[in-house]
Amino acid sequence: MELNRCAKCSEEFVFKRAVCPKCGSQEFTKALVTGAVALDSVHLIATPEPFPDDYSVVLFEAQGGARGFCRTTFEVKRGDRLKIKDDENGPVCEPE
């Protein structure tokens, strides 16, 4: 899973922006998510298309502070370190 990193102040975001909200720079590079830790996880029954019918959404924080969502079919608890990769629909994770 890729993050957007500000080329000037190194702030990292999941959400791609045209302008860095921290420093105003308009230059970004891509960075891989590393050191992600689960902040919480919600088991979701009514899921949106195009995703499968039953999974948990995990809110994670990466090493550099960027936060995002990934799907999992594993039991993920708050504080678990995560392995994140992409499937055809987006990022999926499992406990390390």
């Binding site: 959400f15 969502f69 799907r71 990022p91």
Partner: peptide, 10 residues
């Protein structure tokens, strides 16, 4: 946001 949506939240 499109990138957050990819993680499957509703």
């Amino acid at each position: 946001p499109p990138e957050e949506r990819l993680g499957g939240p509703s």
